[in-house]
Amino acid sequence: MTNTAISDAEVGQSQARLIFRRFVTNKTAMVSFVLLIAIFGFSISAIGLGPIPGWWHYNFYAPMPTADEGRPTLSIIPEWLGGSGISLGDHPFGQTRIGVDYFAATMRGVQNSFVVIVLLAGVATVLGTVVGAIAGYYRGWVDAILMRITDVFIVIPTIVVGAVVGRMTGGLGVSFLAIALGLVAWMGIARLVRAEFLSLREREFVEAARVAGASDARIIFKHILPNAMGVVIVAASLIAAAAILLETALSYLGYGIHAPERSLGLLVSENQSAFSTRPWLFWYPAFFTVAPALLINFIGDGLRDAFDPRQKRFSIRRTKELPETTEQRS
């Protein structure tokens, strides 16, 4: 953490406060954060979670008679513009061919995306941090063994091992799938954390803690890890965005979540043939796949800026081309 960007106003504040301040003043990141929470909050409150019912009056699995060939009833063009007014209607996103409410189905997909993000990124981050921390702190043969293991996993492209793991666990439900995928996606974080630990463990404050008699665990978790949090959090945000895409891709290939459970990737791939005839079946889940991933990327970018403000503005000098002689000496 080189603090090249500390301005006068920031002097005297704790590192965490500084970072937090930098993050909340980043408008794009904050707006993205609020929107992301809103999307997930909306999806959870709409159809409820587990036994808790939501405010939407249909669930994502019960077939119903189809009305108007399953067309969406959502209307967003106000009457004074020639539309039919702003209203949700009975089935805002339409219905599937057996009449399941597509809004509820899409919201279930969003919920599952959320589960995947939290569990996959959570498992990968914790595992990767622990492995990286231990390897970087102890060095020597511990490091050698752990890094060899990391190498082994890094050789296999995530989507390939994900496909295999997904085929094994896809039928067991979203949580199983997410956790299993998390177990094969931790290598990037492990490498980053290790590199951070390797440099941090040589710093004076670690030496001081050791002299004061702190245990290894205490040094790792209380002293070094907080200083490496920037790397961890930024990497975790990237994994979270990638998690959505991974689950979507696997479901598309048929290795992920299975019907009648809903996943956005599954909805998109099931309804690809409806692209030109019932486009809403394609576009709603497609939108809710891209939007959270995009928002997370913006949040991640904001976090990176907050933790590491080195990429500050620089100005290009406008100079005239210099005479030939000068240049040839360069």
Partner: peptide, 29 residues
Amino acid sequence: NNPNRVDAFQLIQASAAEAGFVVEDAGSA
């Protein structure tokens, strides 16, 4: 992996429940 069978299952599940059957999902790839 066959949408026709998945849909048929869901419809049977809903209908059988009305008569008191508890239909469990034993679907598999």
